[in-house]
Design a protein around this nucleic acid. Structure first.
Length: 287
DNA sequence: CCCACGACCTGTGGGC
DNA sequence: TGCCCACAGGTCGTGG
């Protein structure tokens, strides 16, 4: 679920509550998510102060004053929500993760500010780790990641170089986090539609002019989605439990059989499978 | 090297 | 109403 805009929205919602806060208690409700929690996880977090909450690709990074960074990936259904003490659905109690089944609340971080942060993840494809901050960049999670698409490090030249002579189709290539970091199935479909590029085109055959459009389309769709608080299909919520609303702006994702939204395009949105995932596109304007 | 596919896990929505 | 299948925002590993 959560792609870059959703993770960034969660980061922005959590940051005011977590930056500068000290963790006074940590409740860990099971030994693992997708992978085991690291050894002594709760003990290594308890007493730590979060100095900054950052994001790299789809990872949330909490910089701790202990020299370690708490790394969290939300997988498909992971969500972090805040709860102010005493303001839960039941007065005086925590509900932990608005709208989520509490049996999937796997971790609760209690701060010294009267605020707790709960991690809820029904499918448990998410994972967390504690990594020495000084060596974060060398860690396998991060060493191979491509540039942040909203940073100056990402440009048309990034794609020109990464796609040169690449035979893999452009859709699957954009999902490769080593080329550009943070895109997922929704925003790749939407960016390709904005840039009028057929998802089955070999990456190496996309023209420089199309790659320029694609670079701009990736930026614009991500920026607009962040402004909208991300996209909620099912599970995703912002940190305060609200729904995102960028899903109302989808032009192709989940819109099979709808008429193409491009002005003056007579096409119809179609669905196909690439790399085992649904691709939504217009076969007419995405030449 | 490339690609397709299954695995991980649970929930939901559609069709019958 | 109930059951079964397909499918879901992500990644990783295997085997052809």
């Amino acid at each position: 679920m959560p792609e870059l805009p959703e993770v960034e929205t969660v980061r922005r919602g959590l940051a005011p509550h977590l930056e500068g806060a000290r963790l006074v208690a940590v409740r860990q409700n099971r030994p693992d998510l997708r992978f085991p929690f690291p050894d002594d996880f709760a003990a290594r977090l308890t007493g730590a102060t979060i100095q900054a909450l950052e994001r790299r690709a789809k990872y949330l990074l909490a910089r701790l004053d202990t020299g370690e960074t708490l790394v969290a990936h939300l997988g498909m259904t992971g969500r972090f929500t805040i709860e102010v003490d005493g303001e839960g659905e039941t007065p005086g109690q925590f509900h932990y993760a608005a709208g989520a089944d509490p049996k999937h609340t796997h971790l609760v971080l209690v701060t010294d500010r009267g605020v707790s942060v709960a991690y809820n993840d029904a499918r448990r494809f998410g994972y967390m780790d504690l990594i020495a901050t000084a060596r974060l960049g060398e860690h396998p999670y991060f060493a191979g990641l491509g540039p942040e698409p909203l940073s100056d490090a990402f440009s048309t030249a990034t794609l020109v170089s990464a796609f040169a002579a690449r035979k893999q189709n452009v859709k699957v290539s954009l999902l490769d986090q080593r080329i550009v970091a943070g895109l997922g199935n929704i925003y790749v479909c939407e960016a390709l539609h904005r840039a009028r590029i057929h998802p089955e085109r070999a990456a190496g055959d996309v023209t420089p002019a199309q790659l320029k459009r694609l670079t701009a389309a990736i930026r614009s769709v991500l920026e607009e989605a962040i402004t909208a608080g991300g996209s909620t299909l099912r599970d995703y919520r912002t940190a305060d439990g609200a729904l995102g609303y960028f899903q109302h702006s989808f032009k192709v994702y989940g819109r099979e059989d709808d008429p193409c939204a491009k002005p003056r395009c007579a096409g119809v949105v179609r669905r196909m499978v690439q790399g085992g995932r649904s691709t939504f596109f217009c076969g007419v304007c995405q030449g």
